[in-house]
Design a protein around this nucleic acid. Structure first.
Lengths: 385, 385
DNA sequence: AGAGTTGGCTACAACGTTGTAGCAGGGTTT
DNA sequence: AAACCCTGCTACAACGTTGTAGCCAACTCT
């Protein structure tokens, strides 16, 4: 019996009670969207053709001064705004980019926020809209998201967070939508990624400790299979090697990227190597845990043991002593990612280019740099990568 | 000489070098957007009319089984995805909501992130897209943003952060776009707001301290002209009044919502009222500052002085002792805001309803609740409001 | 057998733009 | 005076859908 969705349409009671402010109700309203002035209304009202209005709108420069002035006046008077929808349809471009953020519970890292700011800043200049989609990593329905991208003819994609799996990455790659992954190493024919120089950052952190006179430097690792973990470990080893300091397995422990893990890792290191004078942790959370363990063990930070973390989470600056750390340039990453996507869009032949950005060493209190120098915490130095 | 923008179109060199993966290149590409299969292709390929395909797509239920199967097969085979753009144009609905976030440098509060998660979760269910726009509060070009909203025929709006000014609020109100402000008290004919029960939260915090036996409870205020500040102060006074505890101006100081401000405010209170045994700060940042001041003054938290904050910033759980605080239910706020906007859209006659959500008391270590009970930090109790 | 009903399909006019092609008419060149 | 070129405008066919109206055949009633 159902002859189309029209049959199911609800007639909604229009109870217009409570009009505290009597607005001029010249606008006719349909469900949801106001019936709005179109280019035709302008044309009729100005006594010209639709084409003429369009040409004024798009600056063809072939309309007489008088006419243009009249058309513009009418547009203003009728409060006309050209429909992006119609324009996009006829131009066969959606002017929409999508950012999909896959997060796991508890991961509310300001880094994401910074990346988003960078992305929006850059693409707005180019006239694109950013649609945002946030999903839980464990949510199985990521295909649903992609379907929406296809239907919206999304022109470019940003993927960020902890993706639901490799299958998704491959599906996106085969979709041929220009894509830039944020801090997820994967490449395809229209797909590349931006990342921080993790090894370089770790090297800078370790070398900073070395430059402060330390040689018994512990390393608190993340967890083995993670690429990020490995790169940061590599940087640590490189720094030691560069300065002829032997690698001591008794100074290395895994903290599994958690605060509690950092604490127990530090305890193990203290037991195995009581002569430790500095710690580089592969994440701030672990560094904070390590500081707790040090305090419990009666070691003063930074006087007895210097600590440097990685990430620059919000807490790093509130913890006492404030944590020196390696900061990823979130906004810059967002901007770079956006620029790369825009290039990929405007130049379909382009070979996607992977981008590695330098990190920044943020010197606060926990590394004890201020014990030697005259100034307090908060000084920033560009990490050499 | 310029006969339209077509004349200015660039011919981009299509250097297709470096095809590491030889994809099947059956798709013809134009600038930016791939030429994609349309409903016509499906119709032709399946030997039916465009209408038939459309009817299959929209489940009119008036298409024969055999035909439907064939059409669906062709759709799958040609990897067809109906154009949302065209659909939206003909349906006169954009299915787009916009969230504008105005932030000032440094305000990277996880609260925003939670709200966004709530909003996206709720509107995706309803088939809407969320376009996100982040701007600096000091950026004068907010009219530009609104123009984009008009052109995109945005159906609903969320405003969050520190708005550039009242003028904007009024402009949005007169635009008649259904709007929900996040934690910004302002109402209009199609506009309302969601907020937390600041007074109730402050009351819960203060009463929690009272229930732990305190009566010399300091209050560290934000800054006077702020509505949030006032509400939280009100809650503090209510709690005291409810329990017959006299209000002592010597226990109140303003911390200007900063960490440093919290520290100096605490110092002033310690001087004026050395017998203070508990502190409620109107923000976590100030609470953290207050804890520093207490430590410097040789007072132990929570043994000598109990501390409760407000906001539940990320740092609250990393600081030691971990900070007990009042948490705004960001995700719930986002969800509520979204639901209200959706209602406003589907029922144009609706009177916008302001929403006040209860806050949550998060008991950690700084208030000393665990000194009395058997369990440690991290317990959550629903704030009574 | 004629009238009515139903199932399964299609034609067509929107929706609000854009951009190309073209057309007057006035001017300037040969 | 014929040939051209500008300037200022308009007609029209797209763009990819939707939803209504309607059509034809095949049934089911009387």
């Amino acid at each position: 019996m159902c002859r189309g969705p029209g049959a199911a349409r609800l007639i909604l009671g229009d109870e217009l009670k409570g009009e505290r402010e009597t607005h001029d109700n010249e606008e006719f309203e349909t469900r949801g969207v106001r019936s709005v002035t179109t280019i035709k209304d302008i044309a009729k009202s100005a006594g010209v053709s639709v084409s003429t209005v369009s040409h004024v709108l798009n600056g063809y420069g072939d309309i007489g001064q008088e006419t243009e002035k009249r058309v513009r006046a009418v547009m203003k008077e009728l409060n006309y705004h050209p429909s992006a929808l119609a324009r996009r349809l006829v131009r066969k471009r959606s002017y929409v980019l999508e950012l999909m953020l896959f997060s796991v519970e508890g991961l509310r890292h300001p880094f994401f926020y910074e990346v988003i700011c960078g992305v929006t800043a850059e693409i707005e200049k180019a006239g694109y809209d950013l649609v945002l989609s946030v999903r839980d990593t464990r949510d199985r329905r990521w295909r649903e998201c992609l379907r929406r991208c296809y239907e919206s003819k999304v022109e470019g994609l940003f993927l960020m967070g902890t993706l639901p799996g490799r299958a998704m990455l491959e599906e996106v790659a085969s979709s041929r939508i220009p894509t830039v992954l944020i801090d997820i190493p994967f490449e395809g024919s229209k797909m590349t990624y931006v990342t921080s120089d993790n090894a370089g950052g770790a090297r800078a952190a370790t070398e900073h400790l070395i430059s402060l006179g330390h040689s018994r430097i512990a390393f608190i690792d993340g967890h083995a299979p993670s690429a990020i973990s490995e790169e940061r470990a590599l940087g640590y080893r490189q720094a030691l090697a560069n300065h002829g300091i032997p690698l001591d397995p008794g100074l290395i422990a895994s903290g599994n990227f958690t605060q509690e893990g950092g604490r127990t890792a530090m305890k193990r290191v203290l037991e195995a190597s009581p002569d430790v004078t500095a710690v580089f942790a592969a994440s701030d959370l672990m560094a904070i845990g390590a500081m707790e363990a040090l305090r419990e063990a009666g070691r003063k930070v930074p006087q007895d043991v210097a600590v440097v973390g990685f990430d620059d989470i919000e807490a790093a600056s509130y913890v006492r002593p404030a944590l020196s750390t390696i900061k990823q340039q979130g906004e810059t990453m967002g901007r770079s990612a956006a620029r790369e996507v825009l290039k990929l869009i405007s130049n379909p032949g382009r070979q996607p280019k992977k981008i590695v950005l330098p990190t920044e060493l943020v010197v606060r209190e926990s590394c004890g740099a201020w014990l030697n120098s005259s100034e307090g915490g908060g000084v920033r130095a560009q990490g050499l990568s």
